[in-house]
Design a protein around this nucleic acid. Structure first.
Lengths: 192, 192
DNA sequence: CAAGCAAACTAACAACTGTTAGTTTTTTTA
DNA sequence: TAAAAAAACTAACAGTTGTTAGTTTGCTTG
C-alpha cells in the first residue's frame, strides 16, 4: 500500500464535503478552502470536479461488484450468502462512510460514467435477487414478494453510511451479526 | 379541498426536478422551463427558491409527526403500532414520492427552518424508539439492539420513495401488509 | 366596454461557478 | 548546492446563478 497522494487527500476531503451538502452544492473554492489552498491549485492534482466524483463512486461500485461475485460463487447456503452480503456492506461502508453518501445520492451527476455505473448497479441487484430466488427455491427463505424482501435488505444496507458514524457504533463484526439477525429473523419474539 | 393554485403547481414541479437532480442542481431557469414560463415569472407566485424547498419538506415532516402521534396514543399492541407506522409511510409516500426525495436528501439546505426540521425529526425517531422499547418490555419484540432494529425499519421506510414509483408496484394496502410481514417476521422460513 | 388584477414578459444586476494561463515558491533529487 | 520537479500562487475568463425592476398581456368583473 503506497502512501497517500495529494490527489487521494483531495478526493477524501471532497467526499466529506459531498456528504454534508451534496456534490452540486460544494464548490471548488469550498474544497480548496477545506484543503488549505486556493481553488486553482486543485487542478495540479485533478482534471475536473467531475473526475473527483467519478473516482469516489466508481471505485466503490466496483468494490461491491467484486465482493458480491466472490460471495456468489462460494459454496454456502442462501441465508449464509445474505449474511456475507451484510458483512460486505458493513466493511466497505465502515472504511468510507463519506464516499458511500456520494454513491447513494450523487450518482446522477456522473455524466460520462453514468451508464457504466447504472450497469454495475443493475447487475448487483440482479445477482442479489438471484441469491434470494435460490433461497426461496431451496426452502430457506419465505415465499413472500421477492422484490419487497430485496428492497428492504438493500434499503437498510444502503443507509449504513448514515448510521455507522453515530456514537453508539459497534465494531464491524458485531454490527454485521446483529444486523443479519434483524434482517433475517425480523424483530418479533418467537413463541417458544 | 380548493383547486390547485399556480404556486402549488410550481412546488409540485420543483419537487419532481429536485428528485431527479437534487435541490442545488436545479436552477430557477430549469424550473421555469418545466413550467413553460420564464424564471422571473416564478416570482409572481413564490418568494424564493428556498421557500419552495421549505414548503415541500416541512409540510411532509409535519404530516409524519401528526400521523405518529395518532398511532402512539391508540390502544393497540406495539407490533400493531409498527404496522400502522408502515402504513403511514406507505400512504404519505404514495401521495408524494417526489417530495419524499427532498425530505430525505435536501433537508440540509433548509437554512432558517433547518432547526425546526431537525427537531421534528429527532422527536419522530424518539417516539418510534419508545414504541419499540415498549414492545421489548412487553415481550412482543426480541431483546436485540434497539438502535439496529430502529435503523433497519426507518431505512426501509425512508427509501420507499425510490421503490414505489417502480413498475411492479402494488396498491398501498398490499404493500403495507407485505412490507410489515418482512420487517416484523424477517425473511427466513420457520421450521414448522 | 372600461377597470382592475393576476400572471406573464424583457432586461439587467451582482455574485458566484469551474477552469485556464502564467508565475512563484517549495521540495526532491543528482 | 544546483537543477528539476512538484505544488502552490495571482489574475482572469466566460458562463451561470437567484433575484429585482419595470412593462406588457390577457382574463374577469362591475
Amino acid at each position: 500500500m503506497k502512501t497517500e497522494t495529494r490527489k487521494d487527500e483531495i478526493i477524501k476531503t471532497a467526499a466529506k464535503l459531498f456528504k454534508e451538502k451534496g456534490y452540486s452544492a460544494v464548490t471548488m473554492r469550498d474544497l480548496a478552502s477545506a484543503m488549505g489552498m486556493k481553488a486553482a491549485s486543485l487542478y495540479n492534482h485533478i482534471k475536473s470536479k467531475q473526475e473527483i466524483l467519478k473516482e469516489i463512486i466508481i471505485s466503490l461500485a466496483e468494490e461491491f461488484t467484486e465482493g458480491l461475485a466472490l460471495i456468489q460463487k462460494s459454496n454456502i447456503s442462501s441465508i449464509r450468502k445474505i449474511e456475507e452480503v451484510v458483512k460486505l456492506h458493513v466493511n466497505i461502508t465502515s472504511q468510507n462512510t463519506y464516499g458511500m453518501a456520494s454513491l447513494n445520492n450523487d450518482w446522477m451527476h456522473l455524466e460520462e460514467k453514468l451508464d457504466y455505473y447504472l450497469e454495475l448497479r443493475a447487475n448487483y441487484e440482479q445477482n442479489l435477487r438471484q441469491i434470494v430466488v435460490e433461497g426461496v427455491e431451496q426452502g430457506e427463505i419465505i415465499d413472500e414478494n421477492i422484490e419487497i424482501m430485496l428492497f428492504s435488505i438493500l434499503s437498510t444496507l444502503r443507509s449504513l453510511y448514515l448510521w455507522i458514524p453515530k456514537k453508539d457504533y459497534l465494531n464491524p463484526e458485531k454490527l454485521s451479526q446483529q444486523l443479519s439477525t434483524v434482517l433475517v429473523k425480523g424483530i418479533n419474539k418467537k413463541i417458544d
